[in-house]
């Protein structure tokens, strides 16, 4: 039994470690605290941080203040910020970025060690609640599904827990931001009303959620495909490479 391994696969998803750029993971943590950890397959940590992020952000109107800051209305920005929980957001935010960066660096070291060990991976898992198997999937399809609806790309590439978290938050954010109402009004040619109905506090979660989900779906599919290749390679070398079969131009017993 290997002490460290590159991947596991079961009904709840595929977890895998590979070399990652810590800066990219830290960036996603700053865009959406908790998401960097989800990219690292640290689902429990990621979901707790994600919940904290949305709660703290909505409570202190941070996104709304961002909108006012970008539009140059600094007084309004100061005014809408709710100071009751605002200051605690700072250590929380820095921790998310720092912890995901540090975890990536340490996981890279673990991957270096895991790669030296023999590679075995169960490629098929069926239970009473789910069927799950390793095969090759199309990265851009995963990305596009998650662009359309964060979580769908994750369902496509077997990341059930990420998919579940993203689907729920997508629904909550869509509902609270009134973004579909606004699109509806926009199509009816009422841009003024379309703007008014939007809740900017919630709407501003969208860019990070949608692009984060698409990035996750795409990059994880690429990595799963590589996992498939290396698992099959290990299998073929082990099972279909018998010593008795001899093909070569060198005749048996001949001195090289």
């Amino acid at each position: 039994m290997a002490r460290r391994y590159k991947a596991v696969l079961n009904c709840f998803g595929t977890s895998q470690i590979h070399y990652r750029n810590p800066v990219v993971i830290a960036w996603w943590s700053s865009a959406l605290p908790g998401f960097g950890h989800m990219l690292l397959n640290m689902h429990i940590k990621g979901n707790i941080l994600f919940l904290c992020e949305i709660f703290l952000n909505v409570q202190s109107n941070l996104n709304l203040a961002t909108v006012y800051t970008f539009t140059g209305e600094f007084d309004l920005a100061k005014h809408v910020l709710n100071t009751r929980l605002l200051i605690i957001y700072i250590p929380f935010y820095i921790f998310c970025i720092w912890d995901s960066y540090r975890s990536t660096v340490d996981l890279n070291k673990n991957f270096f060690l895991a790669e030296k060990e023999p590679f075995e991976l169960p490629v098929f898992d069926m239970s009473a609640i789910e069927v799950c198997f390793l095969d090759k999937r199309v990265p851009w399809a995963a990305g596009v599904w998650s662009l359309l609806f964060p979580g769908l790309g994750q369902l496509y590439n077997r990341r059930i827990i990420t998919a579940f978290a993203l689907l729920i938050w997508m629904l909550v954010i869509t509902y609270n931001s009134h973004y579909l109402d606004s699109v509806h009004l926009l199509f009816y040619g009422k841009p003024g009303e379309a703007k008014e109905i939007l809740n900017m506090e919630w709407l501003l979660f969208f860019p990070s959620l949608v692009f984060g989900a698409a990035f996750d779906a795409y990059s994880k599919t690429v990595e799963h495909n590589k996992l498939f290749d290396s698992e099959q390679r290990a299998y073929l070398e082990k099972e279909w490479h018998s010593e008795s079969t001899h093909i070569s131009f060198i005749k048996k017993g001949e001195q090289p």
Binding site: T71, K195, P207
Partner: peptide, 25 residues
């Protein structure tokens, strides 16, 4: 690409709040 899309999406939506087509577009 994903990083730029997110940053500009946030800024664009914020500024779009003041413009005719609104934050979504």
């Amino acid at each position: 690409a994903a990083i730029f899309a997110t940053i500009l999406g946030v800024i664009g939506a914020s500024i779009g709040f003041r413009l005719v087509w609104g934050p979504i577009v």
